[in-house]
Every structure is written in structure tokens, then in C-alpha cells.
Nucleic acid binder design. Structure first.
Lengths: 195, 195
DNA sequence: GGAATCCTTTAACAAATGATAAATTATAGA
DNA sequence: TCTATAATTTATCATTTGTTAAAGGATTCC
């Protein structure tokens, strides 16, 4: 659990009482490679912290699988839309690598806000950062070419090395064929970059 | 000020004391058509509620003006990235139509959180909705063609009627020429729609 | 180790969008 | 109202990305 609190305390210092309140609504789970920790159609009631492993969120658009999000270990992942609206989610959370997650009961977590304003503040601050990240990504996708987006993602070495290309393509908003073409061109002009 | 509280109370009921605390950090401003209520380069310290008028946020990408956001009367507008990071903003807030805005001192507003957890909750809930809206927009831009995005925007009649097309093009992530082409095609197949 | 399956690349062509320039239409000010 | 300016459309060509199909590599599982 300590990794989770280290993560939280990047945003907001917590008292021992607050930490204990959070501990009681968490459980630790081992998850196999390729398993789904949340399935399409269910309503989300959980926020996950990735202790180890690699995760993606995906959904289907016109019958084609689309990867929306990746999370490396040391980060949170949740199907936020479903969590906030309490409607069934069109998305699934998929383990790309086996690992361990901390499952936070979101319903109970939200209830803690009434007793511990500091926990609501923590959540608020994480939400602010998440908001800024989506705005960044929106701008990247709206005003950069696929080639530029791929070049930017190349800087995230861990992701590029661990994630199959077919998942990266839809994350970048392009087809797999198009990504292959970009990579072929890219390594012509940048022979030192990974193939 | 009452419109502002009506807006807030869609999210969170406020006590008279809380409202009074908010009133003391607000001021009402009349703004001319075409004026900038916030200029590029300044650091944002204000959240605006549009009592009347029409507003956009824009910035420059590679020397080309890009419209990021429109706000109709009855909504909030802020340069959120600058507000949250307290760094100078690359964006400006531009009145497309004359009107009246309520300027909320954001620094003081954030300070109210320590005294009034309800106000922090109000802010948190507005942030949640804003987050969901950006995620929606990201998906729309990532997985719909320019034609589809234009068709969707057509349903927002007020915006389409009041906003010059040159501002709409970059909002949709396309050039003005491309928007013209889409419109020409669109009215061929939909002769009843506005030209 | 071999067969089956999955992942990635390549090729050829189609469709969408960008860039530039010019023509047309609308708007605002004198 | 007339003129200057701004906004929008149209035309042409270049570039990017999508679509489909096939081939080549890699991986998994028996």
C-alpha cells in the first residue's frame, strides 16, 4: 500500500487517520497477463493503482478496437466516465503484462469526502492534473500530424518497448498500416532509433 | 449575480454565507465586441461567467490562429492551464459579441476552499464535468472525420449562426478552405440546412 | 520442432485534407 | 452609397492517411 500513499502524497499530504480510512477500502489483486480487470458493459465502481504490470483501456468504435489509454506501474487507472455517471461502460481495462493492482472501492472513496475534506482535496488535485493531460492530448491530436505524434510517443521509451504496435496505432488515432508506413519512413531518416 | 448562483447550484447547493463569500470576490464588467478580456502572455487569475455575449479562447500554433473553445452566455470560461499552473498563458479570451461578464478572483476563490469545503466540492464537480467534456471532444476529433464533426456542430444552432466560419474551422481542427468544401458538399445532400 | 496463429510490413489504389492562389460575396466605414 | 477590407468559396495540385490484400516474421502451443 505504501506506493499508493507515495503517489497520493505527490498531490496532498495525508494524516495517519486518513490513510487508515483509505486502507480499509482497498484490496490487493494479482492479475494475469491478457486478463481483463474490468469488462465492457459493467458499471465502474473501482479505481485501480498499478503496483506492477502494464494496462490499457480500450473500446470498440464501429467494430474496430480502439486503445484509449495506457497506464504504466505507479499510476492510477479508471473508467472515469462510467465512474462519474454510474452508467455501464463501453470500455474495458486490459492487462498487457501480468502484475499487481490495488483496487480502491470508488463508492466508499467518494463517501470519505464527507468526513475527510483533505481526501476530497486530494481527489480534486488529481482530477486537475488529469484534466490538463487530456487537454494536452486533445491539442496533440488536433494539431500534430500522425508522424509528429509518433515521434512524441517515441520519447516514452518504456511504452514503446512494451506495447505491441497494433495497440499504439489506434492510440495515436491512425491505422496500423499507417503506423508501419510512418515507422518505415522514420527509420530511414533516423537510423539510430528503434526499429 | 443570481445567474451565477443558478449555474453553481446545478452542481451544488450553497448556503447564504457561502454565496456571500463568493459575492465579495466577484466583479461585473461590461465588455465591447472584439475586445480581449485576457491577453496572450498574461498569467490567468480570473474565472469568468458569461452573463451575456459570446466568447472564444484562441492561441497561435505555428503562426496560425487556432480557436480552442467557445462559450455562450450562461457558462464559465477560463484559461484553465494557466490558472492551475500559474504560468503565462499562450491563449487569449476574445469577445465575439459585446456583453457582460462576472469576473471571479480565482486566487481568492481557491482560498475559500479552506473555509468552505462545499465550495471546493462545487469546484470539484464542475471540474468533473469539464473533464468528461474534453474526453468527449478528444474522441470526437480522434475518430470522426471533419465532415462528421461539422455535422455534429450543426446541431448547435446558436453557435453556428453567431460564429464566423473562420473561427469554426480551426475549432474543428481543419483549414477554412476544407470547411468550405465540406459545407458545399453538405448543402448538396442536405438542401434544407443553412448555407 | 512444426503447425497454426498472430503481428508487422509492404504494395497499390482511393479518399480526405492541406496549400496556394484567385474569384466572389459580405461587411464596415467614410 | 461607395469603397476598402474582410470573409467565404472555388479551383488546382500536393500530401497524408485510409482500405484492402498479400507476404514475411514472430510467437505460441501441442
Amino acid at each position: 500500500m505504501e506506493e499508493l500513499f507515495d503517489y497520493f502524497e505527490q498531490f496532498q499530504k495525508l494524516s495517519e487517520i486518513e490513510k487508515e480510512a483509505i486502507r480499509t477500502i482497498c484490496s490487493i489483486k494479482k492479475v494475469d497477463k491478457s486478463s481483463l480487470i474490468e469488462e465492457i458493459g459493467s458499471t465502474s465502481k473501482t479505481i485501480y493503482f498499478i503496483k506492477s504490470g502494464l494496462v490499457r483501456i480500450y473500446y470498440y468504435k464501429d467494430g474496430i478496437e480502439v486503445t484509449e489509454f495506457f497506464a504504466l506501474s505507479g499510476n492510477l487507472v479508471a473508467r472515469v466516465q462510467s465512474l462519474l455517471t454510474q452508467k455501464p461502460s463501453a470500455k474495458a481495462i486490459h492487462m498487457l503484462e501480468a502484475g499487481t493492482v490495488i483496487a480502491i472501492n470508488a463508492t466508499k472513496f467518494f463517501k470519505l469526502f464527507d468526513t475527510f475534506p483533505t481526501i476530497e482535496r486530494l481527489y480534486r488535485m488529481m482530477l486537475e492534473v488529469a484534466y490538463l493531460e487530456v487537454v494536452e492530448r486533445l491539442q496533440s491530436i488536433q494539431f500534430h500530424s500522425a508522424k509528429e505524434r509518433y515521434a512524441a510517443l517515441m520519447n516514452n521509451h518504456e511504452l514503446i518497448q512494451k506495447v505491441p504496435l497494433k495497440f499504439i496505432a489506434s492510440y495515436l488515432g491512425i491505422t496500423q498500416v499507417s503506423l508501419s508506413r510512418i515507422r518505415a519512413n522514420h527509420s530511414k531518416t533516423n537510423p539510430l532509433n528503434p526499429q
